[in-house]
Simulated scan of single mutants.
Amino acid sequence: MSDRLTAVQRALTDAPADLIVECLAEAVARDYAIDIELLLVDYRLAALLPLTGGPPLTRPGEPAWRSFDHQSEVRDGEVGYLPVTGRGERMGVLRCSPAADSAETRGELAEIATLLAHELQAASAGTDRYTSAARTSRLTLAAEMQWELLPGRSRIRPSFSLAGQLEPSYAVRGDSFDWAEQDGRLYLSVLNGHGEGTSAALLTSLATYALRNARRAGLPLADQAALADQAVFAQHRGDRHVETLLLELDLDSGEMQAVDAGSPRMMLLRDGDVLDQPLEAQFPLGMFESSEYAPQSFTLRAGDRLFIVSDGVFDAATGTSRYGEAALHRFVRRTGSLAPLQAVRSLLGDLRVFVGGDLEDDAVAVCLDVTAASRQ
């Protein structure tokens, strides 16, 4: 590591949580003679917003958006753009002026952009500055609760790539997702809590925390569902329930266990074909005092893509026309060349165009790619 890169890293780690970018900019200007500016992606994945103010960038073809979408350096004349991403979580883009000329400097700036992403993730527990700056409008209280509940929006590891998105992003209510990776296994849940406003958000939060509690206790997938089912029923006595899909993927073998508790829709994209992945429907969480759940299994292989959507996607309507399963299958087929975050962003953007604005019902879309060869 060069002396100047070490100095910049020290400036990052020593910076106050709410002044990380300013301290970084001072160090980069001193040691590299380059001015930097952070552009944060908004909750809808539709705008790149300068942290210090200024007009948002909303046109997909702009250089900053090409850097964000393709996760690579993009140069536009004397200005360069670098993705700010940590462990697959895309936070935005770093604008550099002038763009670096030497390969060494370009490599160090790319590393700085990654270091910045990790520092922003660490700082999020201590300041509201960056979450506030990533908004084009005020979130509803329910949406605030739902976004705070998420583990992130995207994740990349050697064996998988994963992303999820909520819509309407600034007013989502009961739809959500959760994931965790441990000991060679990926756990994924997609939830749809019934109701409106904060009551739906509270219901989904209860189910999510109950599932996390059971998962962190090392319980099998079916027992995770049963514990969450009991927690929701104890609170609402069967008046409210949460449609949930629970998945557990063995990253070595590709074996997927699933519990379909009245779940969202799941599709498999394999070798260019879209197939509905059928599962035996079981009772949603909280519907009855004591429900038993049984996992089912299927196998994924390298190159497979799972797309999971709630009913707010395929039931989206305008007038007498529904988006429907046929349109959904066509769209999923076209996403094969897109990274998971681009795929869910494109799908929900297509839905907004279809209905002519925000969706009336909230929706969740999750995309999982299996990228490492399995033993199958």
Rank of each mutant, 00 (worst) to 15 (best):
V366R: 02
L40P: 11
G286H: 12
G336S: 13
L141E: 08
A261R: 13
N192T: 14
P98G: 11
S124M: 03
Q9R: 13
R44K: 13
F314H: 12
R138S: 08
Y187R: 10
G356F: 10
Y130K: 05
P168N: 14
S169Y: 05
Q165G: 08
P264E: 07
C96G: 03
A294D: 09
S72P: 00
L300I: 05
L247D: 01
L245D: 06
D18H: 13
A123Q: 10
A163P: 03
W179H: 12
A99W: 04
T198H: 04
A113Q: 11
L341I: 08
D175N: 06
I20R: 09
V41Q: 01
G312Y: 13
I34H: 09
S137P: 00
Q235T: 09
S72F: 00
D350E: 15
A214S: 05
P55W: 07
D252H: 11
E292A: 14
A46W: 04
L116D: 12
D18W: 06
L351P: 07
E89K: 10
Y81W: 15
G174Y: 10
E243N: 15
R212D: 04
Q235F: 00
L115M: 13
E243W: 03
T320W: 05
F314P: 12
V355T: 05
A33N: 11
S263L: 00
L202I: 02
A103F: 11
L39W: 01
Q146E: 01
D273W: 11
D260Y: 08
L141I: 09
R334V: 01
R185F: 03
M266V: 14
G319I: 12
E255I: 05
Q235V: 02
G272K: 12
V259E: 01
L5Y: 07
V79L: 08
T318L: 09
R185P: 00
D76Y: 08
A228E: 05
E292F: 11
A143K: 02
Y323E: 13
A217R: 02
H70F: 10
G92Q: 06
P55V: 04
S2R: 10
F288L: 12
A201F: 04
A7I: 04
H194E: 14
Q165C: 09
G54W: 08
T318M: 08
G53D: 09
G336C: 06
Q277R: 14
E144W: 02
S124A: 15
L5I: 13
T140P: 12
V84M: 10
S205F: 03
A122G: 10
T58G: 06
G53V: 14
A15N: 13
A210C: 07
T140A: 04
T105Q: 15
A7M: 09
D223F: 00
P284G: 12
S310D: 02
L245V: 09
S137T: 14
R352F: 12
M267S: 13
M266G: 02
F233I: 03
R301D: 06
T299W: 08
E167Y: 06
S290Y: 11
M287A: 12
V21M: 08
R334I: 01
S161C: 07
A200N: 07
A363L: 07
E248C: 02
D18L: 06
D3F: 09
T52Q: 08
R129Y: 01
